[in-house]
Nucleic acid binder design. Structure first.
Lengths: 381, 381
DNA sequence: GTGAAAGCGCTAACAA
DNA sequence: TTGTTAGCGCTTTCAC
């Protein structure tokens, strides 16, 4: 049972003449290491050694007495206090652009897969693509002394990111690399991914391929557009500026598509910079009676799970969210371990580039070749 | 610029005869309140007062000097230290069953919507439906001194939850209510939701309605099954046990459906306990050439966004994930505020029951009536 | 083997 | 208006 502090009427809430800042609080106070020490009849230091089991010698008898006290008082070490003393919080921050875009939960799950095994806990933040919120989150996480930070959403200026990377937290970028500053990075090859997509469409015989881009101040989107351009040029095709546009919302996507399709000699295919937009395009087509892929072939990017549903059948470039998350977490873990063990030798930054794959389904004009791998994942949760 | 600690060769890393535990660390040390105090030529206390701006009087001049020092040193208060001193971490934990089930990100987004405005940060955990992991997460969050906890996944024993609720953290249950112990709770009426679903199917003339249930040790799933049974009974129909079954994975769902459809006088409709499973059923039907809704009408539960895609068209009971998250966060915020302000008066626990709605689309046999509300949400992130 | 003491960075009560 | 001081709960050094 935890130490219960009773409301003590005779007591004036004073300790050594100085008023206690936290007189009597409602409920049950948590036991502290001092309580345990007192109960076991030893010093705090001994209890601490016992708890840390870092190879200190403690007599079997003392050991047993402490264990009993811990059990009795249901003692749980206060991680905040430990953190202050150790100068580490055992906590890693993960900043994503949007928790409701299925890409990110997948990435987070990858991070959890590896971090969850350790003693670390995840501090999560979602920026909704708002740079201000991103800055806020970074600040707040640094103040909370995260030991490491995975940034899967960076709209910040390169320079700000660089400052962060050079600070004394370990940072892994999981969305874009930095040109000037070397930093641990795990990304996919966005240019290649886009080329894969566009080349596939060209392979189907399309010559007028549009591109629905994301906001070009976000690096991966810019790279995807670059890949699109490259693919066209390598095929000896001219780029028609009117076929490249971006949109911000569902209705915006519809408007953009309307505009693109109104161009003389309209596109017969479109490469969309991410699946959420691609799906919006699919919906747009369904509503307008535009047949996919007969009238318009569509390829997306990210390969979120929705795309594989038989009613959707979206061909998409797999951006390996889970693998990115996993790799980023591994890189971070290695980094943190190194810092913990040794304070001077710094390994050079790692830059992992994962290879995206094109997952072919119906929307590009192929027969769905996919051998839909039955997931062994529980469906309830 | 932050205070840089240079590697000082002449210095023996000793302070007052006692060896410093953290000699010289790589990189830039963060400035502390003492650094600021020194730089501004005032005491720590004054700096603290300045930072907290809790209406302490500080001369304009001092104020300016401190501000300058803060700026100069890029001082960021250490939230861990603040937490230790204040006995609060300004952090709230959110435990969900699965981050990759779209229901939960939606709930989390709701929580963020209201918590994000405040100074609190989210500590996130996903249990994957594993009770052991759930227990671990709770422990770890308590050790990290979360000020509040939102539990959107409870497989724990009632009694354990009750102990938690009676502890000195504020807890809001967002998935099930407790029978014995009063506790802040935000849930939807699962029984009603299930009735809505089944009654709708009965309204379509179905008389043989199957139920694909979730694991019945999880309260909401049990309640949904109860609602299913109630609806049948109120309609004067017999319950055929063979039409009620559960499954664990995608292939399991397929097996369950195969079994159910093999029963003599097979069902013409099925009410599925959540959308992930319902979608698995839809996929199953598509693969087998079973037409939905002609051969089999399907209604799910949760109304995850995927259902509204034109290629899916899943009729489903909206479980108001976002609203639940938002409400839970508001309740929690109120609770934490109260605790912060006053330590004795305890408001009675709130129990909010949200009303689920049936969202009608094609899979039940209706013409899709849905007026698909263009979201004004950005599609990129 | 065990304990006393100092200190992690911050806050608040009280004195000046 | 500002400073002194005593913690918050824990870890580690160093002395016993």
């Amino acid at each position: 049972m935890a130490a219960t502090v009773l409301t003590c009427e005779s007591c004036d809430g004073t300790i050594g003449g100085v008023r206690n800042r936290f007189p009597t609080r409602r409920g049950t106070q948590r036991a502290t290491i001092s309580d345990v020490a007192a109960a076991a009849g030893v010093s705090k230091a001994t209890v601490s050694k016992f708890l840390g089991d870092k190879g200190y010698y403690i007599s079997a008898e003392t050991r047993e007495r402490i264990a009993a006290a811990v059990r009795e008082l249901e003692f749980q070490p206060n991680a905040i206090a430990q953190g202050l003393s150790n100068r580490r919080s055992n906590t890693v921050g993960v900043i994503v652009a949007s928790i409701t875009n299925p890409f990110y939960p997948e990435l987070i799950a990858g991070v959890e897969e590896v971090i969850g095994e350790s003693e670390y806990t995840l501090l999560l933040g979602s920026t909704d693509g708002r740079p201000a919120k991103e800055a806020d989150l970074v600040r707040s996480m640094l103040q909370r002394q995260v030991d490491g930070l995975i940034m899967a959403a960076v709209t910040m200026e390169d320079e700000a990111v660089a400052r962060l990377v050079e600070s004394d937290v370990d940072v892994v970028l999981a969305s874009r690399a930095l040109d000037a500053t070397p930093a641990d990075t795990v990304v996919i090859d966005n240019v290649l991914g886009a080329r894969l997509a566009v080349e596939h469409l060209l392979g189907h015989g399309h010559r007028r391929v549009a591109h629905l881009a994301g906001p070009l101040n976000v690096v991966p989107f810019r790279l995807r557009r670059d890949g699109y351009l490259e693919a066209l040029r390598s095929a000896g095709l001219d780029v028609d500026e009117r076929l490249v546009c971006d949109a911000t919302t569902e209705s915006g996507a519809a408007a953009a598509m309307t505009a693109v399709l109104a161009v003389p000699d309209p596109p017969t295919a479109v490469f969309v910079a991410n699946d959420r937009m691609a799906i919006a395009v699919l919906e747009f087509c369904a509503a307008r009676g535009i047949r996919v892929p007969a009238d318009l072939a569509v390829v997306g990017f990210d390969n979120i799970w929705v795309g594989r549903l038989s009613g959707v059948g979206l061909t998409s470039v797999d951006s390996r969210a889970r693998a990115v998350g996993r790799t980023a977490a591994q890189t971070l873990a290695r980094r943190m371990r190194a810092r913990h063990a040794d304070q001077s030798v710094v390994a050079p930054p790692e830059r992992v580039v994962l290879r995206p794959d094109l997952v072919v389904r119906r929307s590009c004009g192929c027969e769905s070749t996919e051998n839909d791998d039955d997931e062994i994942v529980p469906l309830f949760f």
